[in-house]
Nucleic acid binder design. Sequence first.
DNA 1: TGATCAATGGATGACGTCGAGCTAGACCCT
DNA 2: AGGGTCTAGCTCGACGTCATCCATTGATCA
Lengths: 313, 313
Amino acid sequence: MAPRTVSRVVNDEGGYSQATRQRILDAIEELGYRPNLLARGLITRRSGTVGLVVRNLADPLVLALAASAQDSFREQGRSMFFASSDDDADRQGAVLQSLWSHAVEGMIVIPVRDSSPQLADYSRRGLPIVAVGSLVEARNATGVMFDLDAGFRLAVRHLLDTGRRSIGMIGSVSSSYALCPGEEDKDGTFGAGAGSQMVRVQPTVEGGAAGLEQLLELKPDLDAILACNDLVAIGAVGAARARGRRVPEDIGVIGCNDIEPAGFVTPSLTTIRLDAGLFAAAVAAALQGLIDEPGEQRDPVVLPVELVVRDSA
Amino acid sequence: MAPRTVSRVVNDEGGYSQATRQRILDAIEELGYRPNLLARGLITRRSGTVGLVVRNLADPLVLALAASAQDSFREQGRSMFFASSDDDADRQGAVLQSLWSHAVEGMIVIPVRDSSPQLADYSRRGLPIVAVGSLVEARNATGVMFDLDAGFRLAVRHLLDTGRRSIGMIGSVSSSYALCPGEEDKDGTFGAGAGSQMVRVQPTVEGGAAGLEQLLELKPDLDAILACNDLVAIGAVGAARARGRRVPEDIGVIGCNDIEPAGFVTPSLTTIRLDAGLFAAAVAAALQGLIDEPGEQRDPVVLPVELVVRDSA
DNA sequence: TGATCAATGGATGACGTCGAGCTAGACCCT
DNA sequence: AGGGTCTAGCTCGACGTCATCCATTGATCA
């Protein structure tokens, strides 16, 4: 059997009979032949791999993103590298460099804060990059993000509509890519006429509890909380109850993300849902586009969000 | 500058002057040179990559495993492929095949049920495999698991010591690797003299609720529940309260895993803690061992567990 | 009969790197 | 000066695959 013919069958080039094809496939099976994708990638310049770089593993969207991205990539016949930058710009750079040396065809990155120039640099040198929740203006790069402003407006409207008048916001000290709607609103001009106040904490349950304490200090008449993610919201609910405030009667709380526990904590959490499946599909499609048609300028993709009204507000 | 000399510098082989080294490093910086790891792997037969294959992404241990494994591998200078088998043996096989074609040096696998022969086959053909929570008897393979039997005994002892007399167990229809202590105890011979009953459900919050209903049907005098994981335990707590049973007064509930929400649900969950960091470190070390000294027979690693007593039992 | 086509396979070079072996010169020691 | 040792640098081949180009064989078609 000639190598050339085997190559034709393995690569589906056509130009062989069904009988030959079957004979070759049988032989492959029997001998346990595995094509060496390193060698193939070396010559074709397409390695069949992509990379996913996240900021930290604790982020609830990461899992869904990884799962869904993986599905898309399997359909594309690509394998996926996975790495975390641990919220460190240098490490993010090292990861990009390393995976690029492994000849990934493209990368999905949840970028650390202020690393747009770094990403733009890599993409300009030829590495296709989809930045999650961040704008990267460069050839070979694009962004995918949730419409957090809309989510923020939905939440504030809901609070005002249900009679809340004094809204506090608990933001995150280290803004994550998609968890802090309205975070840009630094002056705190919440809904018309309503007072407002913003504090920043660690984006955890404990942080949420601390944030509520701080807000009550600043604004004793507080009757609503907008939290940058569901964990923070859960912490705020706990602290409010410990202080003798009822939720939702005395204080309404809205989270963000709709993580799984949000549905079964007491009271169940009203939250801005970020649809992880939708998100991941959009990300994978965007990367595919960048790889297939390199060099084109692309508009960022903005995904809709939804307010899920449960018991907490 | 000769390629050979550059190669020496890049690979730190020695045999060059400091001046040459600096000149080369400068040139690398300036030209944006990236060594092609595909080509390097082709000739050295060490690709610098490993694979992590999980059963499904919803498993709470997966995140911690991924995070910690990634840290270990970074120290080893390896990059990590990531894939999910979605609980499908054929897909697991396809993933192993695909990643092996990408020349991974070894794999960490959370195996789908009854896939030991498949793993043994791959490992016998030369792919180092660390199976998580499963025994694989083969050259080039080993297993890492929690001492779930010990956890099971701890939990039962605690329930008996606190006066429980009628224990029900909620297991999982699709046993996962580490979440179901005592699942082998199919006859239900729980602690001495205590009655016992076991049902199997989906390992989710909803499944836990359904499981409790079933158990109460079978055993109206039930006063304790042992759940195969924390989500199931949370579901069982919710269902028990909906039925008017107080937790822990009327029914004690013990979960397994110590996932993050376990500490802040109401009542906080007594649970068998599986230390994910410890686990992942052991897994990474085991794989490193398999890669460095191939062919040796190895004993499986068994990790200790701990009972975390909170409010639910 | 000659032309065309499909199936098959041979030969050669390239991808970017490392490995082995070699040369030329510098340096030291006797 | 002669011999040994070390360093810096070179040349050549190999890794496993695909691309390119061409050769052979039958079969079919005009």
